[in-house]
Amino acid sequence: MLIDANVALGPWPFAPLPERTAPQLVAYLKSHGVNRALVSHLGAIFLPEPMPANRALFAAVRRTPTLLPVPVINPALATWREHLAACIAAAPIRAVKIIPAYHNYSLRLPALAPFVAAVNAAGLRLIVATRLEDERHRYHALAVKGLPVAQLAAFLARFPATHFVCSGLYKPEIETLAATHENFSADIAFAEWLNTLALLTQKIPARRLLLGTNTPLFDTRAQVDKLRLARLPAKTLALIGSANAARLFGL
């Protein structure tokens, strides 16, 4: 039983990746031992406003209850309150995601204070996506960089009472943030070194790590094997593989 906290549907314009329907994605993830997944729509990254992609996401997963929709909200847009309300009304959601680097705002954005408050008031978890790909390999005409870890640290300090989920952090970034902040959990999609999880869990409690594969951009088998073959106690693997996600997202 695995829960994947970092999966997407929809097209990625920069590589010939498979574009799966929701039922196909369910079957594909199941073939790799993933029973439930938090899923966003890649279209939300590139459209001028993310709601068409969020609507496509809700429609796609309506009949696949093991895919839990995570709409993307852009709090730099004047209409973020309407967007958040529309997402809450559209489907039972557990979390919303922001992607500051792709949506051209920093975590110092003033609107983030009311936005975080609104997300908390709605009982939702906020996922901060720090990167989607290795910046060295991005499409040459894009200038998107990963979210600076110092900016994320300041953001975590600004909202000490809120526990965030950060996706896309490199292993050293998780370790740096974990040394000073307790109000975040991180997925392991971009954390890698020899014996990744054994090393990471020396720096951050296992209860704050989540399986995240970054499917379809990354190879799902490889990402799942990072957890499945880690030489850690079964209880620790269960925390990272599913229990933490279940707790954080109320599943």
Partner: peptide, 17 residues
């Protein structure tokens, strides 16, 4: 490219292709 990469991941990407 170990130790920069994780063996289970680098093998897994071949098995996953």
């Amino acid at each position: 490219d170990l130790p920069i990469r994780e063996t289970s991941v680098t093998v897994g990407r071949v098995l996953g292709a």
